[in-house]
Nucleic acid binder design. Sequence first.
DNA 1: CATGGGTCTGCGTGGTAAAC
DNA 2: GTTTACCACGCAGACCCATG
Length: 658
Amino acid sequence: MQPYGHENFPSPDYTSSEAAGTASGGREGTYTSFQDVYLPLPPLPPTGNTPSYPGVYGSMSPDTSSLKSFSNPDDGFASFASFASFASFYYHSHSVNPSPLSHLTPSHADGNVHLSTPSMDLPLSPPPRLHYTPPGPLSPYNVSSTLDSALDTFDSVSLDVSYGQTDTLSTSATLGGTAGMPTSAGDARMGDTSLSSGGDASKDPSSDEEEEDAGDSDEDDEDRAPTGAAKVRSLLDTRPFTLVAEDEDAVERSREWPGRNPDRTDIQPSRPSIPLTAAQKETRKAQKGEKALHHELVLARIQELITMQETEVRKAASDLNEKPDKIKKLLIANTHYKKTRKVTLPNAITHYMSTQANGDRAIGEKALLDDLRTLAAHDPNLQNLTDEQKEELKTNLGDHRSLKLVGMRGANKLAAQDVSSTTFHMRDVADNLALRTGAHVIFMVTRGHVNDTFPTTLYGSDNTLRFFHESLGRPAGDVSKLFELWGAANEQNTAERDDFNIVRGQCNDLILIGLRNITHMSGITMEWKYYDTLIVRDRHVKLIGRPEDEIPFGNLSCVLKNGDDAKKLRTELRANRCRWINITAAQAAEHMKKVAERTASGTGGKVRKQRSDAGKKRGPYARAERPPTATKKTTTRSRAPKTPAVIDDSDEENVDVA
DNA sequence: CATGGGTCTGCGTGGTAAAC
DNA sequence: GTTTACCACGCAGACCCATG
């Protein structure tokens, strides 16, 4: 039993047991309740240099990026090709979902191919590809040999073809040279067909011939609609088909997060590890038992100490006539945990020696920690260090740690591992926090690009996922689905995420949140025009530390001229150099005195001009003289809630009067 | 810089109670 | 019974802020 409702949401269709049963084609997991929910994940795909499946996409054109519905019967093949391209593409983007087509809506009674996503269209940016044009039309009957030819040119070739005719029909044809390419078993419902090349050489023309016969017999049966397989074959036979292969290098670059941020250089170096030898494995196996036993002993000893401490605390409390809780609080007032490890000189020296000694060494040949310390002790460069040299060493280690902390992961596989492990850690932290404090915790993690491969995770402690349904009116699954689509559709690198408007909005948020925090007023808003009176004079707070030389005071919409300005201000705000402070009444008075001086000298704030209609009658009686006997039956104090009918009545009254 | 949404402000209106 | 002062509320224009 899972103590908390928590989920990884790899697929959009799981919001009800019905959806899970029909749409995902045999997945076991159901979603029946927000409490005690555990949705088993499908197996992860095989991992290689890239977590997604490299391959060749089947497509009529390299630019089949539209995801809109297409229903032109005359353009059936183009639609089909787009669909196939999309299916393949989508599959690549959902590495954990064995049924990439299950949540599409590819079926309609008019016989055309329609395609829509459950809730929104997803713009696509197809990766760069190389074209491979087979000598003749491509069909299921010659595709094996065609794929063999393609495999002479490319390392791996795969083709996903999908077509749905009714709600229960989905055909999947997979032509794979990639050993790990799954055959989409989840899709293999009615009319499933699977052809292979390279990975399965047994598909010879004779077996193809048998399939053709089977397809013919289907078509001869007038009472039955053509199966999906027959439809695929007829579509493939209709027009020439172009295989499109990826430029692997370009694709690799475009897929990875660093490739999408060419301006950034803070990419973490890979840290490969060498596999253990058989002897090492044996040793570790033996050590495992010993360590477990030792751990048990440690825990038992700790428990003993805790019991002893409890006894002593109670005794002290009794002696001192205090409550045990107070003694305990004073006794255990600090934690031995620190947020960050300090950069110490010995560590900095060791790091320096590591970069010097291990820089070019292969894995397994690198100097170990003891060796590095010995080397450092005898290195003449590290003796009698000046203060500047010590500082430089520390700075280098600090930079190294910073790179490890926020440096970009060099490959999507590493990024996915990072996300996975961090997400698990976050879940543990959230669980523990909920247990310790009763806090409600919800967090979501999703990819920021269609090429990213980590699954969307929506986690909620206890029964907090009910919040989405009960408060926002949407099932939790819908929200995570929207979040994933939003994240994938944005596809922004760091520069794009630092768009001027976005940074300006962040500055506004930081200033507003700071104002609300320091005034303890959740509804207060920033008053740029009346900052002196409404903020400084009335609230006794002040915004200090702005880069005044470059950015004049005022509404950020007016004073921030470009992205550099906005980033500069954001940096100051995030570093807390630009922040709100409390001031005394005397300081506020002093501030207002200066404001008065500025106003007197003509450089003060703007004064609201007089209304143009000041002194004139306005309102409904301004256009017509009020009838002497006009009386409203409804009083303003006991007014019923405003309804359209009430408004209409008042309009009629105005018309009548006019 | 245009725009939408929200707030502030001046004024009108109706109701009530006190003063006349 | 009438007048006046006051209050609460609503309307509409002016203004401000944030966004794109």
